[in-house]
Design a protein around this nucleic acid. Structure first.
Lengths: 222, 222
DNA sequence: ATACATCCTGACCACTTGGTCAACAGGTGG
DNA sequence: CCACCTGTTGACCAAGTGGTCAGGATGTAT
């Protein structure tokens, strides 16, 4: 029953045209996107390839055909997120205006969490689990980045452009505050009673954080 | 091979004395402690009863004997953590000193994360995954608590005791900043190069956060 | 047509998952 | 002695896990 004519084509994806690498690209994109969601929600161990496949609308075998294995897929997602992260870590100098730099820092970090909430949560889940895959990155590149920034904050403090707060704790404060709205979205929504965080909310939060942190650190604009 | 004499006693736990409910209590404690660690690290789905049992040094069957099933164990842990949380949510009044209240708020929240890092991470993992088990709590008790506090902050602002910042975002800021050092401990350690966060560090962070947040919100002490 | 590369996927594998259960040990009270 | 309760645990089960693989479809180049 429910059987069609024998000539029914079960092979769908041909679609005549598009014979370049477009198929691969399209499928990889949808797999990566689905995997980001699933890994973010359940963590590395808790996520199943089956669940990712379903979220991507593909058979499990197909996911493994493109991604090799679960571990590789996960690492690839982490690297993609780190790349996004690095993209907004432009250099700063002691000559820059502290207020401008800090505001830009908060803004861009907030936007990153906003534009890639799943990636943000994926990252958070990885750190929560002890960062088994990101130890190297944390102890290497990121640490370096934090230290150079910290030195500049200190120099600003010496020049009386801001209070002599510990610059590393300040960076952590900004990270935690900006990340919160992506990672703990469920909590924010539950408590505020909203069913989504609007662009307006994001703008208001950004301004709130900028104001409190700049004032709190005694940052003077030139 | 490797077989001992037939009379070998495989039954260990007798221990002659302690015939009260002490056995149960001891075992439950070690199971709960182990489960908190494992759930925090891997999330609800990623944690296996087997892994919890090994961490507790007991056979899997024994864990299930005491806890019924995985879900029940998880819920019990969440409830325990909520109870700890509620314990420090004492009431405040408009007549209280804003500076005192906010500092006490930051301090106690910081201590909670410090004393129960696994519980804090367990909570974080639950929220990250969309808070499937905590929706009710968030939309109920916790929301209520936030709103009453928020109203008091607003009244303080009206009386000129602090800047008119959005009180809800302020509460989230404090939560995120204080929670960060437990939840993202791996990141903090990796970047600072420390191998543990000392009591001194906690005290310094607490003072830093208090200073920045109070100053940032223009809080006046009476 | 032939050959080649990419793509697709159901069947299958060994292993782990959460959970049940029966058998048994130890102690207590009658 | 018995009955009863608490505690213990290996054996077992159905379902799900990550991953492999053979066999086929499709399109391009020769």
């Amino acid at each position: 029953m429910t059987d069609a004519t024998e000539t029914e084509t079960l092979q769908r994806p041909s679609q005549s045209s598009e014979s370049n690498g477009a198929t691969r690209e399209r499928n990889e994109r949808s797999i990566l996107s689905a995997a980001e969601r699933v890994f973010a929600q359940y963590g590395y161990r808790g996520a199943s390839v089956q669940a990712i496949a379903e979220a991507a609308g593909l058979p499990k075998s197909n996911v493994l055909y493109y991604m090799g294995n679960k571990r590789g897929l996960y690492v690839r997602l982490l690297e993609r997120m780190m790349a996004r992260w690095n993209a907004l870590l432009d250099d700063i100098s002691v000559e820059d205006d502290p207020a401008d730099v800090l505001e830009a820092f908060i803004r861009s970090k907030m936007q990153l969490s906003r534009q890639h909430p799943e990636g943000s949560r994926l990252f958070a889940a990885e750190i929560l689990g002890g960062a088994p895959f990101l130890q190297g990155y944390l102890r290497g590149e990121l640490r370096q980045w934090v230290q150079t920034r910290a030195r500049i904050f200190e120099q600003w403090a010496e020049r009386g452009l801001m209070d002599p707060v510990d610059p590393v704790w300040l960076i952590f404060l900004i990270w935690s505050a900006t990340q919160h709205y992506a990672d703990f979205e469920a909590q924010v929504l539950g408590i505020t009673g909203k069913d989504e965080i609007s662009d307006d909310d994001v703008e208001r939060i950004t301004r709130f954080l900028t104001q409190v942190i700049l004032k709190g650190c005694g940052v003077k604009s030139r």
